[in-house]
């Protein structure tokens, strides 16, 4: 079974907001959809889910049209999406009913997931010790943002979906809950699930995703297997830590110093062989080296480089971004 997105595009009048995006998940796994704000990720996700009508293209699952009413799909939206004044139990049962689950089955799954996501105090509130007064069920507006996010994840997973789409699943979570989420996603991903994840957190993407598409202004600017993409870039990031100043030697080699702190120098190479040549010069100059490390570029670097390249080609300027976030 494969999930195929074939040449989907969306136009509003003359404006194309998503321009012929295609990718395929040949087997269950995690696929990343990356892009700057306004790149077309959410629009693409909505078209895949059938929430938004496509101007063209198609989405197939097991060679049949991808219909969320026929296929069990779980969706975690980027924004919080819960009824604020309705009890958590009532709305979770409603969401489960919409997926075709009976009330009994829904209650079993709610029990499981509320314990798994550490939400059982909200779904099954207990009276204070010594008090016999029945505690009213919690409503969504009584929960913190992070807990609401967990409830939404529960809604996405309640019916044990085959295809799961997570739009910024970790945004707004504290480190403890972020780890909880990651463990759940890891657990779910280890089953036969097709997961499409969109995120701005490159570290998270690198942890989970094997394949990715980077969007910019509605177009795919980079696509493929993450390992192979990184391999194609080669190991071009060099970190040097030494007990002497090596700046002059580095500059003499014609190399670009990306960043310099009190202790380390980060150098961007154009070719791996430059690392060997520089090392020889440093050894010759008897520089006491503490660290000399050659690494592949991070996904963040690849992303930023690709976006800048794409913008330059299209004559668009964008602000530089910091590590770990894009245009936040």
């Amino acid at each position: 079974m494969s999930l195929e997105v074939k040449e989907i595009f969306k136009k509003y009048g003359e404006k194309t907001v998503v321009d012929h995006i295609s990718f395929t998940m040949e087997k269950p796994g995690v696929y990343a959809l990356l892009g700057t704000n306004g790149a077309g990720k959410t629009t693409s996700i909505r078209m895949i889910l059938g929430m938004l009508e496509k101007t063209g293209g198609e989405v197939l699952f097991d060679n049949k049209p991808f219909d969320t009413k026929e296929i069990n799909v779980g969706y975690l939206a980027e924004e919080r999406g819960l009824y604020p004044k309705v009890s958590l139990m009532d709305q979770m049962i409603y969401f489960a009913n919409l997926k075709g689950m009976s009330k009994k089955d829904a209650e079993k799954r709610i029990k499981y997931w509320s314990e798994r996501l550490e939400l059982d105090d909200y779904f099954y509130p207990k009276p204070a010790p010594g008090s016999k007064k029945k505690v009213k069920p919690y409503r969504a507006d009584q929960l913190s943002k992070g807990n609401q996010q967990k409830v939404q994840l529960m809604a996405a997973l309640i019916a044990d979906p085959q295809v799961i789409i997570l739009d910024e699943p970790l945004s707004g979570l504290d480190p403890v809950n972020a780890d909880l989420f990651k463990n759940v996603i890891r657990e779910v991903a280890s089953g036969d699930k097709y997961i499409i994840m969109s995120s701005h957190q490159m570290g998270t993407i690198e942890e989970f995703c094997s394949d990715l598409t980077i969007l910019n202004h509605g177009k795919a600017v980079l696509q493929g297997n993450l390992k192979e993409i990184k391999k194609s870039y080669g190991r071009v990031n060099l970190v040097i830590k030494a007990d002497a100043d090596v700046t002059d030697i580095v500059k003499a080699e014609g190399l670009e110093i990306k960043e310099q702190t009190a202790e380390e120098i980060y150098i961007k190479l154009t070719d791996e062989s430059q690392a060997g040549s520089l090392l020889a010069k440093l050894v010759e100059a008897k520089i006491p080296l503490v660290r000399y490390e050659l690494t592949e570029p991070s996904l963040h670097e690849i992303f930023v480089e690709k976006i800048e390249q794409s913008n330059a080609e299209n004559g668009v300027t964008e602000n530089k971004t910091e590590e770990g976030s894009v245009n936040e």
Binding site: L49, A77, G81, P84
Partner: peptide
């Protein structure tokens, strides 16, 4: 409007027309 403002509609539309 409540469903739209609270973005519940995005979730609902994965299952409901």
């Amino acid at each position: 409007v409540e469903e739209k403002a609270n973005r519940i509609v995005e979730y609902l539309m994965t299952t409901v027309r």
